[in-house]
Design a protein around this nucleic acid. Structure first.
Lengths: 134, 134
DNA sequence: CGGGATCCCGATAGATACTG
DNA sequence: CAGTATCTATCGGGATCCCG
């Protein structure tokens, strides 16, 4: 009894922690931004509304599945709007909402940080790699 | 001939695109932040230097492997420092570098955005889910 | 205490093929 | 044109064991 191993305790801790993280807005947002395609789609639409295949062409390496999936979640979160024009053939336009625009601004802030400090990171890596031979 | 199928073209496109993305600082940073534990570690260390197991306790759901892995990449990128005190038993302290502190500031900006707009996102989701029955 | 090495599993990105 | 459905391969993440 009391075979409370470290992993068991950690498992319990993770359960609590996961619940906490899921409730945390910041973490949810980070999860969104982390999604490989989200930032690219937002960046593409920041230049103006686009059609489905225009986005696909702009991003150039995405499969239809991932593009649709990404667009759906962004639509659900109120980041973009989806407008269907029932012509022949069908025409679907995507555009940023005001919320999406403010997200794009945040993305720009991240971009600025990355560009500002990129050299520091690069130098740090070279130093680290030099000191730690494989 | 000219059996250039859509998937083949996309494959080529992805090769180019991947190279482009890897060279893009912004994307690299997003890749870092996207890492589930990075933001948590940075946040933990933002309150001051900590020992390995202190961080582990603070984060509470992380496995030793992921913690070490996360700390290593952050050290390599010059975000944190690792200080070994060869006492018995060994003591290892981690702390944010100036670069790490500025990253923490960026993280705060993200956090602010998330908290500011969280309700909008929540409302948008509820609306979407109501309009799109499973 | 701090961490490396190894095996394993579930999630998920992506290819392919089909539909309205 | 704008998707959807299915299947598969990959891989991050975790458990476990062991070393300095």
């Amino acid at each position: 009894m009391a075979t409370t191993t470290a992993s068991q305790r950690r498992e319990q801790a993770r359960a609590d922690y996961d619940a906490f993280l899921r409730a945390c807005p910041t973490n949810q947002l980070l999860g969104r931004l982390s999604d490989k395609w989200v930032s690219l789609v937002v960046a593409a639409l920041a230049q103006g509304p686009k059609r489905y295949s225009d986005i696909g062409r702009k991003i150039a390496g995405v499969s239809p599945k991932m593009l649709t999936q990404t667009l759906r979640t962004l639509e659900r979160d109120g980041i973009i709007t989806r407008t269907v024009t029932p012509s022949v053939p069908v025409r679907v336009d995507y555009a940023l909402t005001p919320l999406g625009t403010s997200l794009a601004a945040l993305l720009t802030a991240v971009k600025d940080w990355a560009e500002t400090h990129f050299e520091e990171v690069r130098d740090a890596r070279e130093r680290y790699d030099a000191e730690n031979p494989a």
